[in-house]
Design a binder for these strands. Structure first.
Lengths: 331, 331
DNA sequence: AATATCAATGAAAACGTTTACATTAACATT
DNA sequence: AATGTTAATGTAAACGTTTTCATTGATATT
């Protein structure tokens, strides 16, 4: 049987109310009493029953982290960032992902309606109306990572996709490239949309015309990278460089290139976006846009906990995470 | 305010006890009553307060997953495996890792003493006495992944490191290699120890002598792979192939080789262990031992839930996960 | 000296659920 | 007719904590 405050109360000769207050460092308790209670608690190796505590307080020192279906190494970093900050503030982290048996929306509802978590962090690269709907009814604080701009009533964190993409294209132009192709992510994916926008705007700014056939839609997966690469190589007018919408698809390009004995960067140059862990170990090292993934998780957790600990309804925050260009040998 | 069974009871004209029983599908409740209660619950969009439920039942439909300090893409798959199975059985997954601010032991204690989780899955490549100690006092079921053999009182899951390593060495010998070096993991790491054992035994079986200077201790990190590779290349008698204790260190070898213009596999061959995601995208593709990581998580979850749902103390299970050789072009 | 203020503590309710025990009514057995 | 059995439901306690609302005794204010 675990130790309860009742037993501490008995040993200390005070009421359970005083014990509770002492343990919670209530200023109304006499310092001596506090000390007494704390020492007895330590002696008995007391640990508060969080189930009971959360139950009566109607909150939870656990936060829920909802990840999208495919979660790769990218998300490990997010989990790490979230978990480490939460832990240091006395919170636990519950993870879940949407998969064959559950949608993101269902995950939100699960988390929200059971009382199990006090707040939610949600990765939502594609924000459907259904999601917006359920979130608008959400009774606990939440932070959206990568939501749309129009999703402004709540805290959100976004990667600065537009500028990252813009930066990359300017870099390529500076290097002398004039024929630049782009493999986009899925149209529904907000990151993908912004990256495409940065791409076209940068081209326009430098007086390069936007060649429609050099913009191909991928799926942010390696396989789709392979397919898109092959499609591009079939064009009569080939580009000099392919800017893949993310590193996964850039890897797909590498693979397709190797298979077809096409040399990078001499035959065609490749650039990516994300700077995932693998990218630095590709040969040649991929030129890409670094996204500080760990930091995203960290900031998401910070925002959420701030929210949880300030009952006044403060103005929703919107954080845009800056990116940096990483120069490899692939361009 | 969320709906409670009290309100359902009122609407249905029965007591809260009956509602509780009906919702839990107690056979003592008349089918008609059950139906009535369920339909009202559905109407009101009732969701049980799990905090209250778990509190009174002194269990939790949440399991705790403890990961080691450095957790890379390898662990993503574990998390996925655990989470997906747990979810399908109505359990939530809480993750944590040991890091600068907390040891594995503290994580266990945290999970155990708060009532927040009903069971624990722990990845413990190195099982210290301290861990053994705290686990022996553990009051809730747990499963250890990669524990030592002598840790037999509880459920455990192990990678078949020995045979994987043995297989690899036999494969290399078959390919004609005679001078085989091995970069081991940390001595405390149980996986590393078993892999080394498989290595030496395979050599002995085939009448090859074990050259001490060809066995170098790494740390299972990329950097240590670089260092060990360089150390080996400084030897007067160089091996023909380096069998790295894990893929991360194999990647380190790749990097060091590239820097020194050493060609793989012509100048020296490299093999790894784990078959992590990246390995298939290395050039040349790494020859390695595939470990079904997702399955490990899945089985761990299965074992734990089985344990949780059978109050009789059944015999502890020990699962050994088989591995397969993946032939790349690096040997 | 009477009263107000205050610091420290205690008593008890409350949270939403499960469950041991009690109760009822219907039916079966003697 | 009296008793036992059973099915279905109700009553109320219990879980460990926080918190509202007293209560006490001491000190300050008039």
């Amino acid at each position: 049987m675990a130790i309860t405050i009742k037993e501490i109360a008995k040993k200390a000769g005070v009421s359970i109310a005083t014990v509770s207050r002492a343990l919670n460092d209530d200023p109304k308790v006499k310092p001596e009493t506090k000390e007494l209670v704390n020492s007895i608690a330590g002696e008995l190796n007391y640990n508060p029953n969080l189930l009971a505590r959360n139950f009566v307080k109607k909150t939870s020192n656990t936060i829920g982290l909802i990840l999208p279906d495919i979660f790769d190494e990218f998300f490990t970093e997010i989990i790490k960032g979230v978990e480490q900050h939460c832990f240091s503030e006395g919170y636990f982290t519950m993870v879940t992902s949407s998969h064959s048996k559950r949608t993101t929306v269902e995950a939100v509802i699960d988390f929200m309606s059971t009382g199990l978590v006090g707040g939610i962090i949600m990765m939502a690269p594609a924000v459907s109306n259904e999601i917006k709907d359920v979130l608008s009814k959400c009774t606990i604080p939440f932070v959206v990572i990568n939501g749309k701009k129009d999703f402004s009533k709540t805290d959100s964190i976004n990667i600065d996709n537009y500028n990252g993409s813009f930066k990359m294209v300017e870099y390529l132009i500076e290097k002398g490239y004039k024929k630049i192709a782009h493999i986009t992510g899925p149209k529904e994916n907000e990151d993908a949309v912004k990256r495409l926008q940065g791409f076209t705007d940068a081209l326009k700014k430098h007086g390069l015309k936007v060649n429609k056939s050099w913009i191909v839609e991928g799926k942010f997966t390696i396989d789709s990278g392979v397919d898109c690469f092959n499609d591009i190589m079939k064009l009569k007018e080939k580009p000099e460089v392919i800017f893949a919408g993310n590193d996964m698809m850039a890897i797909g390009c590498y693979n397709a290139a190797r298979l077809n004995k096409i040399k990078i960067p001499t035959d065609i140059a490749i650039a990516g976006f994300d700077d995932i862990f693998i990218s630095q170990y590709l040969t040649p090292r991929l030129t890409t846009i670094n996204v500080p993934i760990y930091e995203i998780g960290l900031h998401a957790a910070k925002m959420l906990l701030q929210r949880l600990n300030s009952n006044e309804n403060y103005k929703p925050q919107h954080l845009k995470i800056p990116t940096t260009l990483v120069e490899g040998e692939s361009c």
